[in-house]
Design a protein around this nucleic acid. Structure first.
Length: 144
RNA sequence: GCGGAGGGCCGGAUGGCCGCUUGUGGCAGGUGCAAGCCUGCUACGGGAGGAAAGUCCGGACUCCACAAGACAACGGUGCCGGGUAACGCCCGGCUGGGGUAACCCAAGGGAAAGCGCCACAGAAAACAAACCUCUCUGCGGGUCGUUUCGGCGGCCCAGAAGAGUAAGGGUGAAACGGUGGGGUAAGAGCCCACCGCGGGGCUGGCAACAGCACUGGCACGGCAAGCCCCACCGGGAGCAAUGCCAAAUAGGGACCGCGCGCGGGGCAGGUCGGCCAAGGUCGAUACCGCCCGCAGGCACGUCUUGGCCCGGCGGUCCGGGUUGGCAGCUAAAGGGGCGGUGGCAACACCGUCUUUAGAUGAAUGGUCAUCCAAGGGCAGGUUUCGGCCUGCUCUGGACAGAAUCCGGCUUAUAGGCCCUCCGCGCAU
RNA sequence: GCGGGUAUGGUGAAAAGGUAUCACGGCAGCUUCCCAAGCUUUAGUUACGAGUUCGAUUCUCGUUACCCGCU
């Protein structure tokens, strides 16, 4: 494999992120098409290995905790490639989101062709953490 | 040893940590009279493929339709025999083609039932002839030789006439049997030999077909993955089928039929009365009676009957709403191993052992380490200069993911293992 | 998942076994002082691979891509 181009934002160098989020935020999975469409209209942040969309739910919605969905379109590849990309995204979300996700938000992780499968796993997790930091910083500075 | 042919098998391994899903058991909580259901935790067990793929065939199963099957239409299959639940699949055989061979390929019913097509080229493209040439005979002309000057002979020409013409005709994918010989003026299955073809016959075979001798004397172009004919098969749709529960929405629209019954609303009309010659116009259309203190009840008559619309009941179609849950849902014409019997085989039967994913934004994994294949680089050794061995290091794992299930086919596939056979070379 | 359909220049379409055609567009040239219009010219593996046939866009089989319907 070609040496992975230096990740633009190396995650190993940054100090442990602010772990102020409430621990044990239950992770549930997005299942309905409507949720995905709403998330797609919200803030997004791309990284080299994935695209992350994040949306803060409105008060009227009954869902609670951190919710997350995964999308891999046909552009990612055949069924085997799509499934593997989704599994790696799911593992990354399981490792990162309970600490760095915020309660009451929906996240959608979108896989990219070839990169999501091939990227080193720690770098993959770093990408997700970087994207979450950017998204939360953005929304915090500009309240709706 | 090199090259090749056929068949079968495998489709990385082990471990640590963290997860997903499902089944069973236990515990806790919630709910309920209870059975039970839901949620969480926990223990143990199960958890992708040879193609899970393409969705190309065949079935199981469910619903719909028709029921008695058949015909028609449409679609499919197509050498013969066998296997199978069935098949367009498999096995064996036949025929033709390819290969030195092992072996491979295959398209394989019917073109003397009928229709259609065969571009260009070519004389002619389907039924047999016409056309051009060819040969001979005598006639005419030219020229050469010879001459006893009358002619004679050779060659050529075009012309017209007669006779013979089944051979030849640059083309084309395909041209009216082929090769050789005889024969002839030139030719011709005109005759002969061999080959091909047709015919009926005999023998072998269940059959496709093969062999044999006889005979005919050539009469039969190709295309049916063109229409078609013949034989056989097929009703349609598909688990997002289908059934149930919950929730939500609507109490719809169109058409047809029934009923016009109790009760109700409306319209026209009717009835009664007034005016009016008649059309018409105005008004009324309710109460009365009996029992009874009231509430209320009862019966009859008058109000006639009848019509239309809404409304009512039944049917068909359309529209609208919900995209939740449960069942179907995984043990079946099952698969595999071993042994036996029958069969050339596919396969069948018997015995015995073993195995068995059920997810639904869709699980069956993520990550790390070591090893094993494989490839590259460097160094050293060796060599028959093709390579081989050792060490270090780097890269790095083919095609591909169940979705109702099963039998096939097709397509994709790194690398490896095993068995049988053929040809060539060397050695013995 | 189950079931159906399509593929021809850049785009949209014809061609019904016998030389691939039409319109718009593109390139180049002519015309014009320049532009437009007009005229001339040019470019296709008929999605791909096999088969049937003398001959395939057409008939048959497979592959690929795209589109549509079904709770």
């Amino acid at each position: 494999m070609t040496p992975p181009e230096a990740p633009d934002h190396q995650t190993g160098t940054l100090p442990p992120a602010v772990l102020s989020c409430p621990k044990a935020a239950p992770l549930t999975v997005l299942k309905t098409r409507k949720d995905f469409l709403q998330a797609a209209r919200a803030e997004r942040q791309g990284t080299s290995s994935m695209m992350v969309q994040a949306r803060k739910r409105r008060d009227g919605e009954t869902a609670s905790g951190v919710r997350v969905g995964f999308t891999c379109s046909k552009k990612v590849g055949n069924a085997v490639a799509r499934n593997r990309a989704k599994r790696r995204l799911r593992e990354a979300a399981r490792a990162i989101l309970p600490q760095q996700g915020q309660d009451g938000w929906d996240y959608v992780l979108i896989g990219r062709a070839a990169v999501t499968d091939k990227r080193d796993f720690t770098a993959l997790k770093g990408d997700l953490a970087y994207a979450l930091r950017k998204l939360h910083g953005k929304s915090g500075s500009a309240p709706k």
